[in-house]
């Protein structure tokens, strides 16, 4: 599902070069649940952004969901992104639309046939346990509920791969736990998941394969 070969990423900030990733190589199979761990600034977000082609690597090869990401033409980027669901630390919900409309938005943007929209949105809401809050505006939701809505939005297009960048970063421990349980459920239904987190305890507790980054280098890859 994901393959990196000798990936380097340098950011140039004025005259200064910041090495965010250095010689990172790994492979993730379809159906795996992998944790990407490492302290703040170790390059986790950068790595995820390379995967959905928000940034291009300075060097190296990347393959995601059958796409040669590094050689992808600009006009084909949307196709890659349709295959990937994304959630972030903040839910990024559109404030003017209720939960239901936020999720409908995605399907309409992607030109999904009208008939299919309502059932798929309902199903996504049910999968994250938010059916009862469909008519609520984002501001009326708790942070945990907002993150659930964000997950529903990522899942409604039925991605093969889910990238989660610190999805529990804003949440209290109990609520974070719930979100992690939810991710496990999603994984159980067949979605490949890559979860980035700086919380070492959280990574341990999940008991899954963990890639550890430090200062842009892949430190260890443990099962």
């Amino acid at each position: 599902m994901i393959q990196l070969q000798h990936v380097f990423k340098e950011y140039r900030v004025g005259p200064v070069k910041v090495t965010a990733l250095a010689d990172v190589s790994f492979e993730i199979d379809k159906g795996e649940f992998t944790v990407l761990a490492g302290p703040s600034g170790s390059g986790k977000t950068t790595l995820l952004r390379l995967l959905y082609r928000d940034e291009v690597p300075t060097e190296g090869e990347i393959r995601v969901a059958g796409y040669e990401v590094t050689r992808l033409r600009r006009s084909n980027i949307p196709q890659l992104r349709r295959a990937i669901g994304m959630v972030f630390q903040d839910a990024k919900l559109l404030p003017g639309r209720n939960v239901y409309e936020n999720i409908v938005f995605v399907l309409r943007v992607l030109g999904t046939p009208r008939r299919e929209i309502a059932p798929r949105v309902m199903q996504a809401l049910k999968a994250v346990g938010l059916s009862a809050r469909a008519q609520a505006l984002p501001a009326q939701l708790s942070l945990g509920e907002q993150q659930r809505a964000s997950l529903a939005r990522a899942l409604v297009k039925e991605p093969a791969l889910l990238l989660a960048d610190e999805p529990t970063g804003n949440l209290d421990e109990g609520i974070a736990e719930e979100i992690l349980d939810l991710l496990r459920e999603i994984w159980n239904r067949g979605t490949t998941i890559l979860l980035a987190t700086h919380r070492a305890t959280l990574a341990d507790q999940l008991k899954r394969r963990t890639l550890v980054l430090e200062r842009g280098r892949l430190l260890k890859d443990k099962d």
Partner: peptide, 16 residues
């Protein structure tokens, strides 16, 4: 811009 960010993330074409 928020809509546009979401649109780009989920894979909308530039035209849309």
């Amino acid at each position: 811009r928020q809509e546009m960010e979401i649109m780009r993330l989920v894979g909308a074409s530039e035209m849309v």
